[in-house]
Amino acid sequence: GAPPLPPYSAGGREVTMKKGDILTLLNSTNKDWWKVEVNDRQGFVPAAYVKKLDSGTGKELVLALYDYQEK
């Protein structure tokens, strides 16, 4: 199953993602919540729920390892 959710501390809205989604990583300075862009929406997802990909394009991409439903 998915890892436990860290307390929400990102101070911005969250976004929903599905397992297998490829998201653009915008900011990973917060260790628990990373800012991503998905379907032209920006928001935060739990860092433990995604994995960085080596895209080779200069853009940082992450793979959704679990479904996440915004609150």
Rank of each mutant, 00 (worst) to 15 (best):
51 K>V: 13
20 G>E: 02
51 K>R: 14
41 R>G: 10
58 G>F: 09
40 D>P: 03
26 L>F: 03
11 G>W: 04
63 L>E: 13
41 R>E: 13
51 K>G: 08
32 D>Y: 14
31 K>N: 10
27 N>I: 08
17 M>S: 00
23 L>K: 00
34 W>I: 05
16 T>L: 07
37 E>I: 09
11 G>R: 04
25 L>P: 01
45 V>W: 01
59 K>N: 10
26 L>R: 03
70 E>Y: 07
62 V>I: 07
20 G>M: 02
52 K>A: 08
37 E>D: 08
48 A>W: 03
57 T>V: 14
29 T>S: 14
21 D>Q: 13
45 V>N: 00
47 A>G: 05
44 F>C: 07
61 L>G: 03
19 K>V: 09
19 K>C: 05
7 P>I: 11
16 T>E: 08
27 N>R: 06
29 T>R: 08
17 M>W: 03
55 S>E: 11
8 Y>F: 12
49 Y>E: 01
3 P>A: 06
14 E>M: 13
5 L>R: 10
62 V>K: 00
42 Q>P: 05
50 V>W: 00
12 G>H: 11
68 Y>A: 01
46 P>D: 01
30 N>G: 11
21 D>G: 03
40 D>Q: 12
6 P>E: 03
50 V>G: 01
58 G>M: 10
20 G>Y: 03
39 N>C: 09
70 E>H: 13
70 E>R: 08
22 I>D: 01
56 G>M: 13
58 G>K: 11
14 E>P: 15
9 S>W: 09
5 L>Y: 07
18 K>V: 11
68 Y>G: 00
30 N>C: 07
51 K>C: 09
38 V>F: 15
49 Y>G: 02
47 A>D: 01
53 L>S: 03
13 R>K: 14
64 A>R: 01
8 Y>I: 13
69 Q>V: 13
53 L>C: 06
25 L>F: 03
5 L>I: 13
63 L>H: 03
51 K>I: 11
3 P>I: 06
66 Y>C: 04
34 W>R: 00
43 G>F: 07
67 D>G: 04
13 R>E: 12
66 Y>D: 03
17 M>R: 00
52 K>M: 13
46 P>M: 01
42 Q>N: 08
53 L>Q: 06
49 Y>C: 03
30 N>H: 06
11 G>C: 10
12 G>Y: 10
10 A>C: 10
50 V>L: 09
61 L>Y: 14
29 T>W: 08
10 A>H: 15
12 G>P: 07
53 L>G: 02
51 K>W: 06
38 V>T: 13
4 P>I: 09
48 A>V: 10
52 K>C: 06
45 V>Y: 00
66 Y>M: 05
43 G>Q: 01
41 R>I: 13
7 P>W: 05
48 A>P: 05
52 K>G: 05
6 P>N: 03
45 V>G: 00
55 S>H: 14
33 W>N: 00
1 G>L: 10
43 G>C: 04
29 T>K: 11
67 D>W: 02
62 V>N: 01
26 L>P: 00
71 K>L: 11
7 P>Y: 06
13 R>A: 15
65 L>R: 03
60 E>D: 12
39 N>F: 08
9 S>R: 05
52 K>F: 09
20 G>S: 02
11 G>L: 11
70 E>F: 06
71 K>C: 08
18 K>Y: 12
68 Y>V: 02
66 Y>I: 04
42 Q>I: 15
13 R>I: 12
1 G>Y: 10
35 K>S: 07
47 A>F: 01
20 G>P: 00
10 A>Y: 06
16 T>I: 06
23 L>P: 01
10 A>L: 13
24 T>C: 06
24 T>N: 08
50 V>M: 05
46 P>I: 02
71 K>S: 15
1 G>V: 08
51 K>S: 11
36 V>S: 00
50 V>D: 01
19 K>T: 08
25 L>H: 01
70 E>I: 08
67 D>R: 02
22 I>W: 03
13 R>W: 11
19 K>F: 05
20 G>F: 03
15 V>S: 04
57 T>P: 14
50 V>A: 03
40 D>R: 10
3 P>D: 05
24 T>H: 10
56 G>K: 06
69 Q>P: 14
7 P>M: 09
56 G>Y: 14
3 P>C: 05
10 A>V: 10
36 V>C: 05
14 E>K: 09
44 F>Q: 02
6 P>Q: 03
68 Y>R: 02
13 R>D: 13
15 V>T: 07
23 L>N: 01
54 D>L: 14
36 V>Y: 01
4 P>D: 11
2 A>T: 13
19 K>L: 04
28 S>Y: 08
27 N>C: 07
55 S>K: 11
13 R>N: 14
55 S>T: 14
9 S>L: 11
28 S>W: 10
17 M>D: 00
53 L>D: 03
34 W>H: 02
69 Q>I: 12
23 L>V: 06
7 P>T: 08
23 L>F: 10
53 L>I: 13
19 K>N: 04
59 K>I: 15
63 L>K: 07
66 Y>N: 04
4 P>M: 11
17 M>V: 07
31 K>R: 14
44 F>A: 02
58 G>C: 05
3 P>E: 05
58 G>R: 08
38 V>E: 04
38 V>Q: 11
18 K>F: 10
70 E>T: 15
42 Q>L: 07
51 K>Y: 05
63 L>R: 09
67 D>V: 02
16 T>W: 09
57 T>R: 03
54 D>Q: 13
44 F>T: 02
18 K>M: 11
43 G>T: 03
68 Y>L: 03
62 V>S: 02
70 E>D: 10
25 L>E: 00
28 S>D: 15
39 N>S: 14
43 G>W: 08
48 A>F: 04
53 L>V: 12
38 V>W: 09
24 T>Q: 07
59 K>F: 11
66 Y>E: 04
52 K>L: 14
4 P>S: 10
35 K>Y: 15
20 G>R: 02
28 S>V: 07
28 S>P: 06
10 A>T: 12
33 W>K: 01
64 A>T: 04
71 K>F: 13
61 L>Q: 14
42 Q>G: 06
48 A>K: 08
22 I>F: 05
24 T>D: 05
41 R>W: 06
66 Y>T: 03
8 Y>A: 09
37 E>Y: 04
41 R>M: 14
37 E>V: 08
49 Y>W: 08
32 D>T: 06
43 G>A: 05
27 N>L: 08
15 V>M: 14
22 I>A: 03
26 L>C: 05
26 L>D: 01
23 L>D: 00
23 L>W: 04
61 L>E: 11
7 P>K: 03
54 D>M: 13
58 G>E: 13
60 E>C: 08
50 V>F: 05
35 K>C: 10
45 V>L: 02
38 V>S: 13
65 L>G: 01
31 K>V: 12
59 K>M: 13
47 A>M: 04
65 L>A: 03
2 A>L: 13
63 L>A: 04
29 T>M: 13
29 T>N: 14
66 Y>Q: 05
33 W>R: 01
6 P>L: 03
55 S>I: 13
8 Y>T: 15
56 G>A: 15
70 E>K: 09
63 L>V: 15
45 V>T: 02
66 Y>K: 05
46 P>K: 01
59 K>Y: 10
54 D>H: 13
40 D>E: 12
11 G>Y: 03
30 N>K: 05
69 Q>D: 12
64 A>F: 01
31 K>S: 12
15 V>A: 06
22 I>H: 04
30 N>I: 04
58 G>T: 12
46 P>L: 02
1 G>P: 14
4 P>V: 10
33 W>P: 00
52 K>N: 04
46 P>E: 00
9 S>F: 12
41 R>F: 10
11 G>H: 11
